[in-house]
């Protein structure tokens, strides 16, 4: 009896003391639209004309004295191309570090990951629809021509976005409508990022007198993501007219000012890394 009692104790300890995790990866952070709070997701109407939009990822840093001209060029291109161009300014790398005159950290795990993808890490440089793969980059003189060329690629994906910031619940609700107009091989991932503009803070700018600018206005700054930097697979070998609405409720970060924020969504080919198309929506609109 005594031995059985001891054996029972040992077995109880054994079977209650192991957390074997077969699937360590958690679902993306934003998963789980709060339909209980906000009702069903909205319905989207298919667009009659499907075009390819372009994402410009501008790698920068607050201690990068050569970067402000690139930031200004990006904003000029935004004006030039309008809704067909989305911009994400990514603070990453050694020149994005904090320092005595740069106390605020604007790096993000997503930005660090994108920076790590680059074949050569330098400032300023940009990716344009991740043409040539995620490691490929373009310097500022090539940006306009590359964007123009990418905009001319025939559209195959109808990508639409609805988003709202719910202040009382501190939620960001995002709905992404995606519809392929042609059958496509490969798997495709959806990424949803949050960017913020009008952040006033220090920036080194060699073209400015003095070069330490304490009240530089930062635009399109990557602040976080709904889906994680790699996103989630939304299509695998989609047929023509393959359609999906992806909905998310994400806890809002109190450090972000909602009216200055925007949501950027894009879908990329998992094999090549190239972005198929993108779209963005300002929350203040």
């Amino acid at each position: 009896m005594k031995k059985i009692f001891l054996l029972t104790i040992v077995l109880v300890v054994f079977f209650t003391s192991c957390d074997v995790i077969d699937e360590p990866i958690c679902p993306p952070l934003g998963v789980g639209f709060r339909e209980d709070l906000y009702g069903p997701p909205p319905e989207f109407d298919p667009q009659a004309t499907v075009l390819t939009n372009v994402l410009l990822e501008d790698f920068t840093g607050q201690q990068c004295g050569n970067c402000p001209p690139a930031n200004i060029l990006a904003r000029d291109l935004d004006t030039l191309f309008g809704e067909r161009l989305s911009i994400v300014t990514i603070h990453a790398g050694s020149l994005a570090a904090t320092g005595p005159d740069y106390p605020n950290d604007y790096t993000t795990p997503e930005g660090d990951f994108y920076w790590s993808q680059l074949a050569f890490q330098a400032y300023p440089e940009g990716r344009i629809n991740r043409k040539g793969g995620p490691s490929n980059f373009f310097t500022t003189p090539a940006w306009e021509d590359e964007i123009t060329e990418s905009l001319a690629v025939p559209g195959v994906l109808d990508l639409q976005l609805a988003a709202e910031y719910v202040a009382e619940n501190q939620h960001l609700n995002v709905h992404v409508y995606s519809r392929f107009t042609e059958a496509m091989p490969d798997a495709f991932r959806l990424v949803v990022l949050v960017i913020e503009s009008k952040i006033v803070d220090h920036q080194l700018w060699y073209g400015h007198i003095p070069p330490e600018v304490p009240d530089y206005v930062h635009y399109h700054m990557l602040r976080g993501s709904v889906t994680g930097a790699s996103g989630e697979i939304v299509f695998t070998n989609p047929d023509a007219d393959a359609t999906l609405v992806s909905s998310y409720s994400m806890d809002w970060n109190a450090a972000w000012i909602a009216e200055n924020c925007a949501v950027v969504a894009f879908i990329f080919n998992e094999s090549t890394g190239a972005i198929v198309t993108c779209t963005d929506l300002e929350l203040g609109e």
């Binding site: 054994f14 209650t16 003391s17 192991c18 957390d19 074997v20 995790i21 699937e23 360590p24 990866i25 958690c26 993306p28 952070l29 795990p109 997503e110 990951f113 994680g228 930097a229 790699s230």
Partner: peptide, 17 residues
């Protein structure tokens, strides 16, 4: 609960044997 590693969020095992 979880740990952020690269771009992934991973569940932490609380009991390790």
């Amino acid at each position: 609960e979880t740990i952020d590693k690269d771009t992934l969020v991973l569940k932490l095992p609380n009991n390790v044997a």
